[in-house]
Amino acid sequence: MTLEASVVHGDWEYQPVRLPRDVTRLNATAELGLRSRFGGWELARTLLYADGTRKVWLRRKLSRMREGAAV
């Protein structure tokens, strides 16, 4: 899995994640589930490319504490 830079848009923070074609659906589900449970992320969008790689966008609501820490 390849993490890209987070993007803030409005009240949401987005985290793009690239999944190589050799990552099984079960392994992807487990990894994204951990990010959801412990990082507060939820699945926003998925995109499947012709070469078998997938890109998913995770999002989470910005909290005032995270906003202050990022500045």
Rank of each mutant, 00 (worst) to 15 (best):
F38T: 11
T46F: 06
R18A: 13
V8W: 02
R59N: 04
E31N: 08
R35E: 11
G33P: 01
R59C: 04
G10M: 01
A44Y: 06
W41Y: 02
V7I: 07
S63A: 00
A70P: 00
L3Q: 12
P16Y: 09
T29N: 15
L19H: 03
R45E: 14
G33K: 03
T2R: 15
N27T: 13
M1P: 06
G33S: 04
T24N: 00
R54H: 05
V71N: 13
W12H: 05
R60G: 03
G52K: 01
P20G: 02
V23A: 03
Y14A: 04
R37Y: 07
K61M: 03
M65S: 11
T29V: 14
V23L: 10
R35W: 11
R45Q: 15
R37F: 07
L26H: 15
V23G: 00
V71A: 15
L32A: 09
Q15C: 04
E31L: 11
T29C: 14
A28Q: 09
G33C: 03
V71Q: 14
A70L: 05
V23F: 04
A5D: 14
F38P: 05
A30W: 12
G10K: 04
L34P: 05
V7T: 07
L26F: 12
M1E: 08
T53E: 06
K55D: 08
T29K: 13
A5V: 09
H9F: 12
Y49N: 13
T2I: 13
T53F: 03
V56M: 11
R59H: 06
A69Q: 12
R37M: 10
H9G: 11
L62E: 04
P20Q: 05
R66N: 09
A50G: 06
L34N: 15
R59G: 04
T2F: 10
V23W: 04
L48P: 02
A70H: 01
T29I: 11
R64S: 14
D22Q: 13
W12S: 02
R18C: 07
E67H: 07
Y49I: 00
R25F: 15
Y49Q: 09
S6F: 06
K55N: 06
S63V: 00
S63Y: 00
T29W: 08
G40V: 00
K61V: 01
S36A: 15
L48T: 10
E67S: 08
A70I: 01
G40Q: 02
L62N: 07
R59F: 08
E42C: 05
L26N: 14
S36L: 03
A50D: 14
V8R: 03
V7C: 00
T46C: 08
R54V: 05
Q15R: 07
A50R: 10
R64P: 09
S36Y: 05
A50I: 07
L19C: 06
L47P: 00
T2A: 12
E13H: 01
H9V: 12
A30N: 09
G52M: 02
W41V: 02
Y49G: 03
V23N: 01
P16T: 10
D22I: 04
D51Y: 00
T2K: 14
A69T: 08
K61F: 02
L32N: 09
V56Y: 09
